[in-house]
């Protein structure tokens, strides 16, 4: 057990913080520690968690992607239009279309990065502008409300009536999220390709000398994120029951912050699915708790931002490092 904690410090700390916050909130509010609220939290977080595990794969491979959230918006539009064209479709065709469209957009990033040696932040900032600009241009900023019925109908997978008469429900996005999380975990920890992604992110030159296909790594990582972004886009449309072209604009940075809070490293080679999920949950729980405590919603973001800032500061700081005149051992090598 101690070994487990030592090997997953970030996750352990995050978990402890979440437990601590939860305990406080359980005493401070009546509603926090209820099944209904727990399920709500999952329902709200599902889309971000799907984004997060996708982004995690790119971060592990040493890249970064700014474009995935607007790519998801593009996917929403493409999927809605295609579904209309094929006469409605269903969950299977919807997921297939969204997933493939997402993969396509992700592969564009990988192609630019690989073929022209553009570093990922430059390439994806460019595609961010291209995707978003073209989306707003062609849609003229108009939202789609007449989505197929199957897409806008809430799918409740599990429900239970609570003592106070309210219903605790788990909806479809949560199940999809769970599948995405499980598959991503399986992929990056239990397949050789997943381990190669870690190795590539950790030491690209070392990986190259082992004959690992660098191109394949980029395409797989960005393709994976594209797929997750596509699925998340569809889930968000389902949840919101509409497609608004700029609904996900700006989401990329929130997700990035949560993933890195979960221990992933910009630069590659590090990060776990568990940490990533905990990172998103910490942010959601904080917002949820503040909400229940009756704090003004305008203050949420401020407090969340402060928490992330403090968390990043503390997790990067070693105490001796904060003292100006001391240098870390091995620092001078």
């Amino acid at each position: 057990m101690r070994k487990l904690v030592a090997a997953h410090t970030t996750e352990a700390v995050l978990f402890a913080v979440i437990i601590a916050i939860s305990i406080v909130l359980s005493f401070a509010t009546e509603r926090f520690f209820t099944l209904g609220n727990a399920f709500d939290l999952l329902n709200i977080s599902a889309v971000n968690i799907i984004f997060a595990v996708g982004l995690l794969v790119v971060l592990i491979a040493g890249g970064i992607d700014i474009s995935f959230a607007v790519a998801a918006s593009v996917v929403q539009y493409v999927t809605a239009l295609l579904l209309e064209r094929i006469g409605g479709g269903g969950w299977v065709s919807g997921l297939l279309i969204a997933g493939s469209a997402g993969i396509g957009l992700g592969l564009i990033n990988a192609f630019l990065i690989l073929r022209f040696r553009i570093i990922s932040i430059v390439a994806t900032i460019a595609t961010f502008n291209v995707y978003f600009g073209l989306l707003m241009f062609f849609t003229r900023g108009v939202s789609i409300y007449n989505l197929p019925d199957w897409l806008t109908t809430r799918v409740i997978v599990y429900e239970r009536e609570m003592a106070d008469g309210s219903w605790a429900e788990i909806t479809l996005p949560v199940v999809v999220m769970a599948v995405c999380v499980a598959v991503t975990w399986l992929f990056i920890t239990r397949t050789t390709t997943g381990r190669q992604l870690y190795a590539f992110g950790d030491n690209p030159e070392g990986a190259r000398r082992f004959g690992i296909n660098i191109g394949a790594m980029q395409f797989i990582a960005f393709g994976w994120l594209g797929m997750m972004a596509g699925i998340a886009g569809l889930m968000q449309a389902h949840y919101a029951q509409e497609v608004v072209p700029n609904a996900l604009y700006g989401r990329e940075l929130d997700v990035l912050a949560a993933v890195v809070l979960g221990g992933a490293r910009l630069g590659g080679g590090k990060g776990t699915v568990l940490g990533c999920v905990l990172g998103v949950l910490l942010v959601s729980i904080t917002q949820n708790g503040l909400n229940l405590m009756g704090v003004s919603p305008f203050a949420f973001k401020m407090i969340v931002g402060a928490i992330i800032l403090v968390a990043i500061t503390l997790s990067s700081a070693r105490l001796e490092n904060l003292l100006p005149m001391r240098t870390r051992k091995g620092d001078d090598r």
């Binding site: 910009l266 305008f298 203050a299 401020m302 407090i303 931002g305 500061t313 997790s315």
Partner: peptide
């Protein structure tokens, strides 16, 4: 702390946005 500037400024951005909106 040598924290990554993207993260530090990102959290500062989220904080300032929240503070301003508040």
């Amino acid at each position: 702390t040598r924290a990554h500037p993207i993260l530090v400024s990102l959290s500062m951005m989220i904080f300032l946005r929240g503070l301003g909106e508040f």
